[in-house]
Design a protein around this nucleic acid. Structure first.
Lengths: 355, 355
DNA sequence: GTTAGCACTTAGACCTTTTGAGTGCTAAAA
DNA sequence: TTTTAGCACTCAAAAGGTCTAAGTGCTAAC
């Protein structure tokens, strides 16, 4: 190898093979990998001495590191990144896994929310890592209001949102309702509260509306509240974890200090929303270690955004140690999000035989 | 003391005082408490020897135990139970805490769900334990169906439920909608799907409805699906935790084995629903240790059900080590659930000055 | 370019010793 | 009869020391 060794530079085929074997073995066993192991178990056809030389160079190039002098090598972030980007053999989902995924999706033809959440549970079980379900914040406003009178004290407020959904809220009034006063109220809402965020509603707006309502002024407050609720709820985001206890299975998280760091991170759900907002859509994203994110070292976050009509509405992913079974996780997440997107867009579920 | 010592029997005033001091101290420090400590810090006006004698008797009676011969004493479940039931001085919420609670409740005049969840967050912060928010399963059926046509391909299905709520679902159809076919569909729903759980809908029902709809048979399926979603969602229950990382602060959970047990328990949300269903309503319930529940030893669960119209709709509580600041937790949970029940029932929020 | 061999390093396992907190018991004091 | 001082005893946890095994880097031979 002429010339100096470049940090992160190109690798010979042999180096690639050794690096890949080290990472595979480390992912499987969780311990530093030594040269001897590679000769006997990974069947690299060179002596341990040769491998040691290669490993020393891989270390100098930044792909490996040693926890201490007399230990084997462990992959660095750079090592994992390389592995993910180029070395990994794409894991083929087993028939059993595909069936499990399809069954889940079929049985739970329900709300988007519960689909995502069930998918998340399944991912946790299939991969044995903590899974993450994210429902993204949607900034919605109301395009138009209409109504339906339920009885003399209740009417239904129907709001078409900017996202072309329909939200409804039941409004209770302590005065008698009739077509007359409710329709007046609704046209006021259509005048003042269309394409407007809840923060834009000022007290003076409310006063104006109340004076316009005359004797039925008491209807304004509950109506505004219903409007507020509908829009505020929509703009609520949501990050949920499943299988948090699986983290404890991995030795890298088995001391309390590490755990504290990890848990306070998981608690900080905004960080996950942040990462989602900075991610690439329509592909599986992989965050590793702490150079790339403000995550705890030794950990990685793999997820794929869910998009509908070009808008990111959420994500499903996996959180775990950076020595993670990347190919399995990536293919599971990929498969599932594809299917979910299909369901959301109204396509029928394909039979499990496919693939 | 004439006669033999009775297990769990009555206690002299001095024993009570000593027991209480031991538990107070143990709650504060998390370590076994020795006789010397009680003399110097808890200001028990007897010598350490006397206290040792009393402690030996309290141990024999089942209120205390020793982790090992040369250690201090630790309360047993029986000890904690006694403490909770009779010794504890009711903790007075500080003004700051009351203000925080009230502000939270005021700012978030929204969905019940989000109220409970925010309350839960607050409880976790105020008490420094993991908080638990439970939304109970509601078994609901639909009392009557009505509709509102949105455009030529969408209508709104409005369902009055057995719980006197109104649920709505937007239904999309690929055939043209008009007053005629939608109203026919709705009257079929009123004939076949009233007071019925989703499981009662059989395939033959669907076939019957489809043949009755004639040319518009394709409307039946999306309508049934909407009905199913609405009722299934309502019957979904929900257990959420906040501040799980706080558990790590307590030494009793600081070894990985203990943590595994605790986390797999938290994962098992049905257990919490179970406990809720077996709890006493309208008061704060305290589960301690493992004699009383299938909880991990060293842990306790304190919660209060939320009831509306005599039905339990959820609960707010705290999960933590059995050495828990019972009085603080109990008064926080009590206060908050009272207020939330008030809000749900439509009462106005009282001013923070009260109390 | 590859490999065998060897000196060197070091975390972790294992053992022993020391320390100190806390007890139970006995005999004296109140 | 109740309380207390004093003392011998116990035991977990900390501290220290030794040993082992895994794994390395380097040199010299192939």
């Amino acid at each position: 190898m002429a010339g100096g060794i470049i940090y992160g530079g190109p690798l010979s085929e042999r180096k690639k093979r050794i690096l890949r074997s080290i990472i595979d073995a480390h992912i499987a066993m969780g311990e530093p990998i030594g040269s001897k192991y590679l000769v006997t178990s990974a069947e690299i056809p060179f002596s341990s001495a040769t491998i040691r030389n290669e490993m020393a160079e891989l270390e100098e190039m930044g792909y490996l590191e040693q926890p201490h002098t007399s230990a084997g090598r462990v992959p660095t972030q750079l090592g994992y990144r390389f592995y993910v980007d180029s070395l990994m053999e794409s894991y083929k989902l087993t028939a059993a896994e595909i069936v499990a995924l399809n069954n889940m999706l079929k049985s739970k033809i329900g709300e988007l929310d519960s689909i995502i959440q069930n998918a998340s549970k399944l991912v946790a079980n299939l991969t044995n890592y903590t899974s993450v379900a994210i429902k993204a914040r949607e900034k919605e406003t109301v395009r138009s209001f209409s109504y339906m009178i339920l009885d003399e004290h209740n009417f239904l407020m129907v709001m078409k949102t900017s996202g072309d959904k329909v939200k409804t809220k039941q409004v209770h009034a302590d005065i008698l309702l009739d077509e007359n006063n409710v329709s007046r109220l609704i046209s006021l809402l259509n005048a003042y509260c269309v394409n407007v965020t809840p923060d834009d509603i000022t007290y003076s707006t409310i006063v104006k509306m109340e004076s316009a309502m005359g004797g039925a002024a008491r209807l304004v407050n509950p109506a505004i509240k219903a409007f507020y609720d509908a829009v505020a709820t929509a703009s609520d985001s949501n990050v949920r974890f499943e299988g948090v206890n699986k983290l404890l299975e991995y030795p890298e998280f088995s001391n309390v200090e590490q755990l504290k760091r990890v848990f306070s991170m998981l608690e900080n759900k905004d960080d996950f929303l942040d990462i989602l907002s900075r991610s690439e859509r329509d592909k599986v994203n992989v965050f590793i270690g702490d150079g790339e994110n403000n995550f705890a070292t030794n950990s990685a976050f793999i997820f794929r955004p869910l998009t509908v009509d070009g808008k990111v509405i959420g994500a499903i992913g996996v959180f775990g140690p950076s020595r993670m079974d990347y190919s399995k996780v990536i293919s599971t997440v990929e498969y599932l999000t594809q299917k979910i997107t299909g369901i959301i867009e109204g396509r029928a579920l394909p039979e499990p035989e496919e693939e």
